[in-house]
């Protein structure tokens, strides 16, 4: 009963947050559209925008209808659905890449302090945290085009080429923009504090396995960083998509902005904030699973 109530509460809060984000995006996008009153060109007023937003929300919730594009008259869900798979692949893949790199390095830095490896490698992570995604991407892109680029999807393509085609953008997104550096810092601190505790020293003394405990504790800051960085990761995915691929959500969004097509942008913003909210809820759930003390 209690868990059901907390779940309902979480869902209500998430819906309220979603309404807040989409409403402000709607107000901003209202400035893109013009109305003509007695020969004077104005942007729609706050009240008419609010009424329109109510209509949009009822349509979206009751019928799952996100409106249609103002330029091509296609359904918005149709336009977005094709491009969205690529973005999702990029984001999820990059998060996995950064976790796979950050956890071993952070744990190594925490356990083996004062070795040459740690002394020279950990400052190297600062360099990666100073690299913007787009800089690394435009540096790598020419070489990527030479070896993997421009796939002819109707021909027989070797698997290695497809892996390279998506893998290199995913790795770039996972490495750059400071996610890895931040993760390594936090994991190092948490695990370093944990290794000095008595129960771990006792476990080492009786030669028990400590990898489970260490991994459990190293995962906590990773979850928190992923959720607090999720909107950055989405932005980075847009940039990588813009530089590497000729189709995708970022191109759809920028075209919609250029041709003043608010419905498409609204749907993109809604889906992104939905993803962020889901990531927040996931973070809370996973944190409770890993560390039951934090349950409230």
């Amino acid at each position: 009963m209690n868990t059901l109530r907390t779940i309902l509460k979480e869902i209500c809060i998430a819906l309220l947050i979603l309404i807040g984000t989409t409403f402000t995006i709607y107000l901003l996008l209202g400035q893109l559209v013009y109305e003509h009153h007695e020969g004077v060109r104005t942007t729609p007023s706050f009240f008419s925008l609010t009424a329109d937003y109510g209509e949009w929300v009822t349509d979206a919730v009751l019928r799952g209808d996100l409106g249609h594009s103002a330029t091509t008259n296609r359904d918005v869900s149709d336009i977005i659905g094709t491009g969205f798979r690529q973005t999702f692949l990029l984001v999820i893949g990059s998060l996995f890449v950064s976790i796979l790199i950050a956890i071993p390095l952070g744990v190594a830095a925490a356990i083996r302090t004062n070795t040459w490896f740690v002394r020279f490698f950990i400052p190297g992570t600062y360099l990666f945290s100073a690299l913007p995604v787009f800089l690394l991407a435009i540096f790598i892109r020419p070489y990527w085009v030479q070896s993997f680029g421009i796939l002819d999807w109707y021909a027989d393509i070797p698997l290695s080429r497809i892996i390279g085609y998506y893998g290199i953008p995913i790795i770039i997104l996972g490495i750059a923009d400071g996610v890895i550096g931040e993760m390594i810092k936090h994991i190092r601190e948490v695990v370093g504090g944990m290794v000095r505790e008595n129960y771990i020293r006792a476990a080492i003394a009786r030669s028990a396995r400590i990898s489970k405990h260490i991994l459990k504790n190293a995962l906590l800051p990773v979850f928190t960083i992923i959720t607090s960085r999720f909107s950055y990761a989405l932005g980075g995915a847009l940039i990588v998509e813009y530089i590497f691929f000729s189709q995708g959500i970022s191109i759809v969004a920028l075209d919609a902005l250029k041709y003043r097509d608010p419905n498409v942008l609204l749907a993109i913003g809604m889906i992104f904030s939905l993803l962020i909210v889901i990531a927040n809820i996931m973070n809370r759930v996973l944190t409770v699973i890993v560390d039951p003390r934090t349950r409230t």
Partner: peptide, 11 residues
């Protein structure tokens, strides 16, 4: 916190 930053900023 839940805003998609880059979408808001380009708008």
């Amino acid at each position: 916190d839940a805003y998609p930053r880059i979408v808001i900023l380009i708008i």
